[in-house]
Simulated scan of single mutants.
Amino acid sequence: MMSVQVTLSPVDEAGPVAERILRTLPAWFGIEEATLEYIRDAHANPTFVADDGGEAVGFLTLVVHTAYAAEIHVMGVLPSYHRQGVGRQMVAVAEAYLRRQGIAYLQVKTLNDTHPDEGYARTRQFYLAMGFRPLEVFPDLWGPHNPCLQLIKAL
Rank of each mutant, 00 (worst) to 15 (best):
109 K>I: 08
49 V>A: 00
149 L>W: 12
34 A>D: 15
70 A>Y: 10
132 F>D: 07
125 Q>T: 14
144 P>M: 07
66 T>Y: 08
76 G>K: 06
72 I>T: 09
30 G>C: 03
101 Q>F: 01
100 R>T: 12
3 S>G: 01
70 A>R: 08
66 T>N: 10
137 V>D: 07
115 H>Y: 05
89 Q>N: 05
36 L>H: 09
79 P>M: 10
153 K>H: 11
153 K>W: 11
109 K>Y: 10
146 N>V: 07
127 Y>E: 09
90 M>Y: 03
59 F>M: 13
97 Y>C: 01
145 H>Q: 13
146 N>P: 01
100 R>D: 15
148 C>N: 08
25 L>C: 12
109 K>S: 09
85 G>P: 08
39 I>H: 01
22 L>G: 09
42 A>Y: 01
35 T>H: 00
64 V>I: 15
50 A>C: 08
76 G>F: 06
76 G>D: 09
69 A>W: 10
119 G>Y: 15
113 D>F: 07
141 L>G: 04
22 L>M: 13
108 V>K: 01
114 T>W: 09
77 V>F: 05
19 E>M: 04
150 Q>Y: 05
82 H>E: 14
33 E>Q: 08
143 G>V: 11
101 Q>N: 11
116 P>V: 06
62 L>A: 06
51 D>F: 00
138 F>L: 15
117 D>H: 14
64 V>S: 00
9 S>K: 00
144 P>C: 04
129 A>N: 12
155 L>D: 03
118 E>I: 10
3 S>N: 13
134 P>I: 11
74 V>S: 05
43 H>W: 13
147 P>G: 11
61 T>H: 01
108 V>H: 03
76 G>V: 04
10 P>G: 04
1 M>R: 08
71 E>A: 04
29 F>I: 08
138 F>V: 05
88 R>N: 08
84 Q>T: 15
38 Y>C: 01
88 R>P: 02
7 T>E: 15
143 G>S: 06
90 M>R: 01
83 R>C: 08
71 E>T: 07
56 A>H: 03
90 M>L: 10
8 L>Y: 05
121 A>E: 13
75 M>E: 05
131 G>S: 06
45 N>V: 03
151 L>N: 05
150 Q>S: 15
1 M>Y: 11
26 P>V: 01
9 S>Q: 00
34 A>C: 05
34 A>I: 10
84 Q>M: 15
147 P>H: 11
56 A>P: 03
31 I>E: 14
27 A>H: 12
7 T>N: 12
99 R>M: 12
117 D>K: 04
118 E>K: 12
52 D>W: 08
119 G>C: 07
120 Y>N: 05
34 A>L: 15
114 T>S: 14
39 I>A: 00
54 G>K: 02
53 G>F: 07
5 Q>S: 14
6 V>M: 04
8 L>D: 00
39 I>V: 15
107 Q>T: 15
30 G>I: 12
25 L>F: 05
